[in-house]
Design a protein around this nucleic acid. Structure first.
Lengths: 110, 110
DNA sequence: TCATCCCCTTACTTTTTAGTAAGTGCATTA
DNA sequence: TAATGCACTTACTAAAAAGTAAGGGGATGA
């Protein structure tokens, strides 16, 4: 039975690969956030992209969305239990990325 | 001194994020390959994308390109020493990605 | 009464990425 | 003489991702 639609590395890249997704997750690691909070924390993101990426992450099970029936609306986004399994992966990626940036921008002559 | 142009997770995604890059690297882990070999190993890639991705990876220092002055031309691509530092990162990504694919395609009811 | 707050969605445009098809150069092979 | 092999590049088209701007709905505060 073949269920694997793509290379697993690509799968992860697809999950994390939106322009703002790493930033969104970064902020959600710290604590749950409201839509408005994320807008302020990620100054250049548009509402459209923020909601699109949040929906993507929700669909993948990474992010939980909690709606409080109130007016004005209140919605909270948080990293799901499953989403937390991404943290160590992101850390490894981060270390490599940091080193790569250093290599590119700090030691161009090496 | 601020040299960091982007979030390091994005940096890595950018390096690995072309449609065929993970596949290219996967094949180069095993052994060096010629352009032609890669074309055969990755059946759906076009020559244009293959050479573009190889040039990207070369520019980032991941892949070494060796030209043998012969006719017909002979060019070999291999993972650089530096490129090998990506292997453990890719492994971690792979494990998460495999699990995610399983979750999506094998246990949709959970 | 009007603006404000919150959490979005929709329509449209621009930018980025990928795909398609054809062409290049030179030696060897048929 | 013509086709083949290798490693590409170029011009053009299509598809995907992102950006921009505007709207909506209903309570609350000025």
């Amino acid at each position: 039975m073949i269920h694997q639609r793509e290379c697993p590395v690509e799968t992860l890249i697809h999950v994390l690969g939106g322009k703002w997704k790493p930033m969104i997750l970064w902020h959600l690691i710290e604590s749950k956030k409201r839509f408005n909070d994320l807008e302020k924390l990620i100054p250049d993101v548009s509402q459209k992209m923020l909601s699109q990426h949040l929906r993507d992450l929700e669909r993948e099970g990474i992010v939980d969305r909690t709606v409080y029936p109130a007016i004005p609306p209140k919605v909270e986004y948080s990293l799901s239990e499953y989403g937390r399994t991404l943290i160590p992966v992101a850390e490894v990626m981060c270390v490599w990325g940091e080193n790569h940036n250093k290599r590119k921008y700090e030691e161009p002559a090496s």
